[in-house]
Design a binder for these strands. Structure first.
Length: 320
DNA sequence: TCCACATTAGGAAACACGCG
DNA sequence: CGCGTGTTTCCTAATGTGGA
């Protein structure tokens, strides 16, 4: 599908906003090309925005299949997605004196967590289960390539998240071909029940999401973090637990201990801290990540020869 | 007894390694 | 050089345990 340009909006960025870092993190090449960050605002009728920053102005170009559109609604969505209204001062104050995330307040300052819709966040979270960063994002890549609709914006190919309706009518074996293993069943059940999830607060949503088979505490919280910036309750996996316990000195290395320590140090910013932890350690497998923590190498590589959350967009890493 | 919390069992996929 | 196995890296779900 080819989309036509419907107009544009200019937004004033907050101070210390780093568009390039915000757009780089965990983006596939069809989402960010080094200059423009593309993301959907409305699915039906389809409306996609192309965002960029020039001369300290956030430029938002609108693309769709024509129709009425509310610029206020688009503005609100872009502000929310990029976190233009976020105030990280408190978070940075803690980060500055922190043994793990000091770099977030320095070289990564101005980088925002970019949100997705809840459905996309759920797919991401399910793919992250029992898998390294590389494994998880390969699964996601395969799902997008196999089931996502391709649209063209100014000659740039963009892939939409395969919607619940499409996943729901797929067979488990079809989904398995994306290399997602047992997660196919979880995804299928989520797709079938997704539209019946009521609108509720994040804390209530956590309960609703966990009622799905295959969605535990980690998956639910990661999804809520990515979709709603639900920072106060962190998604803690074993990777996070080991690192957090190593650095802040827990008695053991359990998930619950790590969460307790995280909440003590970061308070209502715990979830955001976990997100940035994956960035500064390039989401490396545990043994390498622990090694880097001990050596104090707590800055992302930023080199283009290695797949990391910040280099994912650079090329087609999973092309087979 | 029942609830909260901790532990254990079970499992998918990638990678490394050794064998023929 | 290819193949199979074991190890590593993670998670959820079921089971176990201890305190109110």
């Amino acid at each position: 599908m080819r989309l036509t340009r419907l107009g544009s909006i200019n937004l004033e960025p907050p101070e210390e906003f780093n568009f390039h870092l915000t757009a780089s993190a965990y983006s596939f090449h069809w989402q960010f090309d080094g200059k423009y960050l593309y993301f959907p605002v409305i699915r039906n009728p389809l409306l996609i925005v192309r965002t960029s920053v020039k001369d300290n102005v956030v430029r938002v170009d609108l693309y769709g299949v024509t129709g009425k559109l509310s610029k206020d609604l688009v503005t609100e969505h872009v502000v929310r997605t990029l976190g233009l209204d976020e105030k990280y001062y408190e978070f940075y104050n803690i980060a500055e004196g922190d043994p793990l995330l000091a770099e977030v307040a320095r070289s990564l300052r101005g980088m925002r967590l970019r949100t997705t819709d809840l459905w996309t966040a759920l797919i991401i979270a399910v793919c992250q289960q029992n898998a390294s960063f590389k494994q998880g994002w390969r699964m996601l890549y395969n799902l997008f390539k196999m089931f996502g609709e391709r649209v063209t914006v100014e000659g740039h190919g963009f892939l939409l998240t395969p919607p619940p309706s499409l996943i729901a009518k797929s067979s488990s074996s079809e989904l398995m071909r994306a290399g997602i293993g047992y997660r196919a069943r979880s995804l299928l059940e989520l797709a079938r029940g997704f539209d019946d999830i009521p609108q509720q607060s994040p804390r209530e949503l956590e309960r609703s999401l966990r009622s799905f088979k295959g969605v535990g505490l980690y998956t639910a919280r990661l999804a809520l973090l990515l979709a709603y910036r639900f920072y106060e309750l962190p998604p803690v996996d074993r990777w996070t637990a080991r690192i957090v316990c190593e650095v802040y000195g827990c008695k053991g290395v359990s998930i619950s201990e790590a969460e307790e320590v995280l909440r003590k140090v970061w308070g209502k910013w715990s979830g955001l801290a976990v997100y940035y932890l994956t960035i500064v350690l390039d989401a490396e497998p545990l043994s390498k990540a622990l090694d880097r923590v001990r050596k104090g190498l707590l800055k992302p590589y930023m080199s283009s020869d290695k797949l990391t959350p910040l280099t994912l967009y650079l090329r087609d890493w999973f092309v087979s």
